[in-house]
Design a protein around this nucleic acid. Structure first.
Ligand SMILES: [Zn+2]
Ligand SMILES: [Zn+2]
Ligand SMILES: [Zn+2]
Ligand SMILES: [Zn+2]
Lengths: 163, 163
DNA sequence: CGACAAAGTGTTATAGAATAACATAACTTC
DNA sequence: GAAGTTATGTTATTCTATAACACTTTGTCG
């Protein structure tokens, strides 16, 4: 019922990721009294099509491909905004792209490993890391409202594949 | 001869920041055999006009205001690219903006506290934080090429001013 | 049920950020 | 000074995101 983040870059039963994410999304929206409309669900599904962050315009094209009607930017941006508010997806600032959240119900810090090879974004959280972050902020008398940690590089799977 | 990061959001002798940054920039370029041309120096100076990250188009307007000739995007983007390569400025991904680096000569991890009130970006580094980052990456078998840590919130100075 | 308000979506236009491609100028090096 | 390299100018275009307004659907309440 949870999505293990570390498998994102490996071969795995991704349909399981999708269905789990879908369940969680419905639960979160129900709990928040938010409406996961057909359009929003469609965008969410498209974002979850893979573990690779997707740009808004790529999503727009996929939306347009699925339906016959033409799709304009606000359509997809509004859906993305909703999903961001609900904590169901994250924005990767380094890529101007969006990716599904693997644990939307619990508290989550926006931390990602992003592989430059396969494009997969692995969400992670680590207590010692968060402690260091909080300590540093405290040291500066700084109060954190939002945090973005993005590490670009090469994932284990891709490095092993290269040998 | 160094720029203390913690004073960025306070009243301080900013002309000292600028002159120090300028010295360091010249030293870095000399060491790397890179040419700090008048245009690049002008852009660098404009970026260092404050501790608040500046967008490329704001810079462009400032450039245009200073000289009579008209300035097109590639002009400023090429200068910014050069300064980024030399490690003299950083890009704040959450803001699509650029800010001067306070310690360009040494190794530096791209870590920032960004105040939503005054807009100041405070560059910081913390050994335990970096250790946690490296540990986490190692745990996932991930090799880091670039890292971006951006903490948005409210700086001490602004919080005290609000009371 | 029928008005009404609120939330969601469609549509057009525009703003904002970044790069491609090619021409010209300046600076090196021989 | 000629040739090659680096830097800048110039025009056009791509990519990302939002503003503004119209229309539709959904939920609420009398
Ligand atoms: Zn998966
Ligand atoms: Zn990979
Ligand atoms: Zn200063
Ligand atoms: Zn502040």
């Amino acid at each position: 019922m949870t999505i293990p983040t570390s498998i994102a870059s490996q071969q795995h039963d991704h349909s399981h990721c999708i269905s789990t994410a879908m369940e969680q999304a419905k639960a979160v929206c129900a709990q928040n009294g938010a409406r996961l409309t057909p359009l929003r669900e469609q965008v969410f599904r498209l974002v979850w099509n893979s573990h690779q962050p997707l740009g808004a315009y790529a999503l727009m094209d996929m939306l347009a491909a699925e339906s016959t009607r033409r799709v304009a930017p606000p359509t997809v941006y509004r859906a993305l905004e909703f999903l961001l508010e609900q904590g169901l997806i994250h924005r990767i600032n380094m890529l101007n792209a969006f990716v599904g959240c693997t644990h939307p119900s619990s508290e989550h810090a926006n931390n990602f490993l992003i592989c430059e090879h396969c494009g997969v974004a692995i969400e992670f959280s680590a207590d010692p890391l968060q402690t260091s972050i909080n300590d540093t902020a405290a040291e500066f008398g700084f109060s954190i409202n939002a945090q973005s940690i993005e590490l670009m590089g090469c994932c284990q799977h891709c490095r092993e594949a290269e040998l």
